[in-house]
Design a protein around this nucleic acid. Structure first.
Length: 948
RNA sequence: GGGCGAUUAGCUCAGUGGUAGAGCACUGCCUUCACACGGCAGGGGUCACAAGUUCGAACCUUGUAUCGCCCACCA
């Protein structure tokens, strides 16, 4: 006997373990079956399950369980991502808490060993959390982006791209994160609006130059000019003036035209820098004159390139402090050395103020770049980094989507994809971290006879190879001398080797690049690196390309686009046929959930409280395409209630011995109610199947909710109670079979969404089921082989409508629920009378009727109920509230009058009749006929009431 | 600055040319033998606004307003 409720806390872990132990998550390996594979978006190894993961993996699990039940050879490939910055951060924090030495004191090898240790001990707890959610990944194949195999793939891709000229080293401005002390890619920078200032600084003009500057009154009208021996520039970052190498004005700006070609004398550093004309200067912004710091600003960099200005690094590349070799050349005073950039800012302002060169300060909101993980202001920096030629790789990736080889769902994300891909910038892939894939590049001294492969050649000769030994061999071949592999952790290279005859070195030390690759570089290979590439494994042949990738829109650029590029380059194929882009999970107010806002809901809390099924179904029902999901506790609770409802339906079945039938011979089913529910089931199967196929999870879940609660529980169960309690053994047996069958089929349909409660019920309903049939999750997906019996549907819908009408009337007339009322059909006709008699028990039971009489005249003291246009039925009651009955009729009559009038008006319109499709016109005519007939009957009933 | 999306019942959202829908919340009744995590019955909307196309518009077109998000080099 089933308990009154499902206990998820007890059942879910037990069921999950049973599935996993029995190997249910492994691919079937059936060579005749179609293959269906998904690679999980690898969560960070440091990650904890959040709502986004919960949604993302629920949707994948639905697809996976669905296709598995459809008999496909299914693989859901799991794994985690080494997450360079995040992981390094976690371990460094741990070191600090334990009072240990810092990473730098520890040294690279020891630190990396320590991270691995952390990973083995505490990494990947998210895997267990995914199991709580019910994710049916094949964990025996779990991968990690820093596995040996995946690292091999990463190295190969880097080397190959380098050899193809698609990876190169370049010195240009990068987004420098001063907190983590590494370069980051454009995507890892968030623009945030903050309260800031424009400092309007006076730069004295050199060589005694002066000019006339317009003076404005308070209303902005020019009232005259004043003579100035300075030019004003506005800046939100005053400290960068230390690295200024120019001042730009717009060529058409009348105010400054005369100053182009002149110089300013830069305060503090005393450097002469030119005033140049450049269209970048916007006369409307600030003072119209803009200071140019090419080494610390992306715009200025380009202006500097055009004007041939020097690029002076004034901040140290180790921390955001004023330092570095070039600071000397820039003439920066000694008391600025070692100052933090913001301290330097204060000092610059103070110095300007002291020199009476600070014109004024303006309070403004400014957009500032922040590191998305560090949350500190990004410093644009001139450094040598590795870049991927994304523009070249993007072309086939764009074409593949245009040709429909990969489809985005919903389609509108293709625009976002194109937009980004068509404007893609070089991808900076080197990171100054220790945790990650070390870049397979070795530096040697430059040679005179051949420049190195980087765009700006720099002082290095670069050897890129899969292993140090191969790099060494390359170098020996190149230098024609002895080559040593330099020790790790030494910065730079030894170019101080003696040069021999013929301008050749006699001995060379190679230094392994210190940097590691962007984490997303390895993620981009995930669909094929997890399957054994670069080896041509069976898994690779079987499961690549994958069917679908499921991810949130904020990952399109980071991951989806890059998988497309890498996959097309190295596999010559798209990595997935469909990219399903789902929404973000927001809180009930539509705010993005975040720890700092304190509005984050923990999926594990919800799972503990309501069960994983409830959370999964809640999200599925809300997962409409193109919509964000607003989740609240209340919604999850509602879906837990749904699970209880299903559970109790099964309990009802159990009490009434509705077991699991071996099979149903549909054509032999006799009872209309059973034929009706089988028809409804067919429709439900079609809707759910189509819904999942089309990634319309909310439609599929909605169809199930409606079928189970409204159709099965509210009506079918009630309608069959008389049959189950009746004397007709044939009907009873048939009903038990059909009820059991429909319930079992429903469990299958619901299983991808609510795997636990359905599996539990399947097991508990095992009576009559053979052991070999096994788990519900391994059952075959229901096919559309039920039946569609229109006559049965018409009949049962008639019964349902009649019961509803009578209940409504009873309610309006305040007839107590317990009171049984006599009921009569008046001149209803043979067919209707027969139908009513067939369902006499049900009608009496559900409408709470005393009896059903067949008459040809309205009984005395009765209230008539007009049901449909052919049936006149009536309710007899001793104490009827006449006023209430009249009111009810009047209300409906008023509505009918309104409807009839407006429809008649429509039909009187010649254009409508002439141009609208015939069936629409006929539909309207029929409507008027029905309504008019009904109105006549209602009017008669109204008259009858007045006589009481 | 560019792009995308949204605006339908108190709330969350379906509905893409033919009589406005669901869930939750709300109101009333009901401890009826699967379920009070329940049942039955209700109330509640000029479909943001304006113009246009059409016999007919929540739906198509254009514009406006408000909100949200993404991208973009921080004077």
């Amino acid at each position: 006997m089933l308990d009154q409720r499902f206990d998820p806390a007890e059942a879910e872990p037990r069921l999950y373990k049973a599935w996993e132990t029995k190997g249910c998550f492994k691919p079937s390996g059936n060579p005749d079956a179609e293959v269906y594979s998904i690679v999980i978006p690898p969560p960070n190894v440091t990650g904890v399950l959040h709502m986004g993961h919960a949604l993302n993996n629920t949707l994948q699990d639905i697809l996976i369980r669905f296709e598995r039940m459809r008999g496909k050879n299914v693989l859901w490939q799991p794994g985690t991502d080494h997450a360079g910055i995040a992981t390094q951060m976690v371990v460094e924090r741990q070191l600090a808490e334990e009072g240990n030495v810092s990473r730098r004191d520890m040294g690279r090898d020891a630190f990396v060993a320590r991270v691995w240790e952390w990973k083995e001990q505490s990494g990947g707890s998210i895997v267990n959390q995914l199991k709580r959610l019910g994710a049916s990944c094949d964990w025996s194949r779990e991968r990690f982006t820093m596995d040996e195999g995946l690292s091999k793939a990463v190295t190969k891709v880097f080397v190959d791209l380098y050899n193809k000229g698609l990876i190169y080293r370049d010195k240009r401005l990068v987004n420098w994160d001063p907190h983590f002390q590494t370069a980051i890619s454009d995507l890892e920078v968030d623009q945030r609006e903050v309260n800031g200032h424009y400092w309007h600084l006076r730069y004295p003009l050199a060589d005694g130059v002066t000019y006339e500057h317009p003076v404005k009154d308070e209303d902005g009208n020019v009232t005259g000019t004043e003579t100035r021996n300075y030019i004003i520039v506005a800046t939100s970052r005053p400290e960068t003036m230390l690295g200024d190498t120019g001042v730009a004005v717009h060529p058409e700006d009348e105010r400054y035209k005369g100053l182009v070609g002149k110089f300013v004398e830069l305060p503090i550093v005393g450097r002469r820098v030119p005033i140049i004309a450049d269209e970048y200067a916007n006369p409307e912004k600030g003072s119209g004159a803009v200071k140019i710091t090419p080494a610390h600003d992306f715009n200025d960099f380009q202006v500097g390139e055009r004007a041939g200005l020097a690029k002076l690094n004034i901040l140290s590349a180790v921390a955001a402090i004023v330092d570095g070799a070039e600071a000397d050349a820039a003439g920066i005073p000694a008391d600025y050395r070692g100052l933090d950039r913001f301290k330097a800012r204060e000092k610059v302002i103070a110095d300007f103020e002291a020199a009476e060169l600070l014109d004024h300060i303006e309070n403004v909101k400014i957009e500032q770049p922040f590191g998305d993980r560090s949350n500190v202001v990004i410093e644009p920096w001139m450094t040598d980094q590795w870049y991927v030629d994304a523009k070249t790789l993007a072309q086939p990736a764009i074409a593949a989507v245009r040709e429909g080889k990969t489809k985005f769902v919903p389609e509108n994300w293709e625009k976002t994809y194109y937009n980004w891909m068509e404007n893609i910038q070089p991808w900076c892939v080197s990171r100054q971290l220790w945790w990650g894939h070390r870049i397979p590049a070795w530096f040697g001294p430059p040679s005179d006879d051949e420049g190195c492969r980087s765009k700006t050649s720099g002082p290095f000769r670069i050897f890129v190879a899969p292993t140090a030994e191969e790099a060494k061999a390359q170098a020996e071949e190149f230098y024609k001398c002895r080559v040593n592999l330099g020790p790790d952790n030494t910065v730079g290279y030894r170019a101080d080797q003696p040069v021999g005859p013929g301008n050749r070195y006699t001995e060379v030390d190679l230094q392994h690049d210190e940097d590691v690759l962007d984490t997303w570089f390895s993620s981009a290979l995930w669909p094929f690196s997890t399957q054994g590439w670069p080896d041509q494994t069976d898994d690779l042949k079987t499961f690549f390309p994958t069917a679908t990738v499921v991810t949130a829109f904020d990952i399109i650029f980071f991951w989806v686009a890059r998988m497309m590029m890498m996959s097309l380059e190295f596999m010559g194929e798209v990595p997935f046929r469909d990219a399903y882009i789902h929404a973000l999970v927001l809180d009930e107010k539509g705010q993005k959930m975040s720890k700092s806002k304190g509005n984050a809901m923990d999926p594990l809390d919800l799972i503990n409280e309501y069960g994983a099924d409830a959370l999964r179904f809640a999200m599925s029902r809300l997962a409409g395409q193109g919509r964000n999901i607003r989740l609240s506790k209340q919604v999850v609770e509602g879906n837990r209630n749904f699970a209880t409802k299903l559970w109790n339906a099964a309990r009802f079945a159990e009490m009434n011995e509705c077991g699991a039938p071996a099979c149903i011979d549909f054509p032999t089913v006799e009872s209309p109610v059973n034929r009706w529910i089988l028809s409804e089931l067919s429709t439900c199967i079609a809707d759910v199947t189509k819904g999942i196929e089309d990634f319309r999870f909310n439609d599929a879940a909605g169809a199930l909710y409606k079928f189970i609660w409204n159709t099965f529980c509210d009506w079918y169960v009630e309608l069959i109670k008389p049959l189950l309690g009746g004397m007709d053994d044939g009907a009873k047996s048939e009903t038990r079979q059909v009820c059991g069958y429909v319930l079992d089929e429903t469990l299958k349909l619901l299983h991808p969404f609510m795997p636990f409660v359905t599996e539990e019920l399947w097991e508990r309903r095992a009576t009559g089921r053979t052991a070999e049939q096994g788990f519900l999750m391994m059952q075959q997906w229901p096919a559309f082989t039920g039946l569609h019996d229109k006559a049965a549907s018409d009949e049962i819908n008639w019964v349902i409508d009649l019961i509803t009408e009578i209940r409504s009337l009873r309610n309006d007339l305040d007839i107590p629920a317990g009171t049984k009322v006599p009921f009569a059909l008046v001149n209803a006709g043979d067919e209707i009378e027969a139908r009513a008699m067939r369902h006499e028990d049900v009608l009496k039971r559900l409408a709470r009727l005393e009896d059903i009489a067949i008459t040809d005249a309205t009984p005395a003291g009765a209230v008539t109920l007009v049901f449909g246009d052919t049936v006149t039925a009536l309710v007899i009651a001793d104490l009827v509230d006449i006023d209430a009955a009249c009111k009810r009729l009047d209300k409906e009559l008023a509505q009918l009058d309104k409807d009839i009038t407006s429809t008649e008006k429509k039909l009187a319109n010649a254009d409508f009749v002439a141009r609208a499709p015939e069936e629409i016109v006929e539909e309207n005519r029929e409507r008027v006929r029905d309504w008019t007939a009904r109105r006549e009957k209602l009017r008669a009933a109204r008259k009858g009431l007045e006589g009481l």
